[in-house]
Design a protein around this nucleic acid. Structure first.
Lengths: 200, 200
DNA sequence: CGGCGTTTTGAGAGAGCTCAACATCGGTGG
DNA sequence: CCACCGATGTTGAGCTCTCTCAAAACGCCG
């Protein structure tokens, strides 16, 4: 993730890293857009500040995530970016990216493909949130993240991370997994989950 | 929406419409990708069928939505598309879109911009689902959808539609809006909501 | 006027969240 | 090698909030 495969070597070479202290602002509404950011370390949140000063969060970006893709196509930012923790970000300058987009059809295609994939996974995750039952939500997650054989799911991080991605409290996830294992629907191993069958 | 502004006239001219009966399959996993679909009427769901035959829904596309953007960059489909109701879809053939993407930097940029905007709104909606309290979720929605003055929100459809977008039951939304109005936080008018203040 | 969909309000139940205590594991330093 | 520490993992119990089911008022259109 720290070297996105959809970026050519030349673009990666033009990247600039920057460190942020917790609470520090990366950019503000109305400022000129600088380019595309990638989070290297820490967390940065995108917020829109309303009339009364309250924040409405648009995104919380974690390491590996990109920030403000849409800003590439706008003159100014339409929200604020604030570091939620100490963080390090990598800036891919707008001029270079846009230039490459114009000149290099291959890059344009890779870039569009990356965005299209993101759209798909985001829509899937949004769809998942429409499922109320914790167990069904876990089933949905497992079905979608299973390897091609449909039998094994490799957990990318901790179970707490998985709970956050699922929009469940970690306690609820632990309980649900324990029940599913007790019912023989899954088998839990170190870092992976094996699907046994789905009780029809 | 029925004539996306990011598509040039020549591409729109190449579109092909097709009608689907409820339950009919638009494409299946493994089939050659035909292009980008736009929903004209009805609903089409994208699903992945798991080993035991159960569906995992990836997306439910409504009129105006696009379907399978990522398929433009893949040889075959990775999920099934099935009409949930009688529906009409418009196909923008892959060869034409990809060709245009290669040859026309302006189109490539518009296409990428459209995808980037979608990524942003999807991330925002996903973030919104992390808010548990119905009232705070409504506040978030209003803050994000308020006009630049930050005082008025125009409702795009019925309140039931809004409830669905918020991931709330319509009853819960009605109640929450009634309470907020009673507390003087909002004023309800025909088709719009006025924000008065946010109780600190 | 009659019918259909939206909007409202009521009551009850269930599911997940919160708080809390404890177990487990990996790393760190004495 | 062992004690300690922090983070993850686990289980328990109560509570709140939303969902669900129900019923009725309202508004629009033929």
């Amino acid at each position: 993730m720290s070297a996105p495969d959809w970026l050519s070597a030349s673009i990666r070479a033009a990247a600039v890293e920057r460190a942020l202290a917790a609470g520090q602002t990366l950019f503000r509404t109305g400022a000129r857009t600088a380019g595309l950011y990638e989070i290297v370390k820490g967390k940065v949140r995108l917020v829109r500040i309303d009339r009364s000063g309250r924040e409405a969060v648009l995104q919380v970006a974690a390491p590996g995530d990109t920030l403000a893709e849409a800003s590439l196509f706008s003159l100014t930012y339409h929200c604020d970016a604030i570091a939620s923790t100490d963080a390090v970000v990598r800036l891919y300058p707008k001029a270079i990216l846009v230039g490459e987009l114009q000149r290099n059809p291959k890059f344009a295609q890779d870039f569009a493909a990356m965005l299209a994939r993101q759209v798909m996974t985001l829509r899937t995750r949004l769809e998942q949130r429409n499922i109320h039952s914790a167990r069904d939500r876990v089933r949905h997650y497992l079905a979608i993240n299973a390897d091609p054989s449909g039998r094994t799911v490799v957990l990318s991080g901790t179970l707490k991370d998985m709970a956050a991605e699922l929009g469940l409290s970690h306690e609820a996830l632990y309980r649900t997994l324990a029940e599913m294992a007790a019912d023989g629907e899954i088998e839990r191993r170190k870092g992976t989950i094996r699907l046994i069958k789905s009780a029809t």
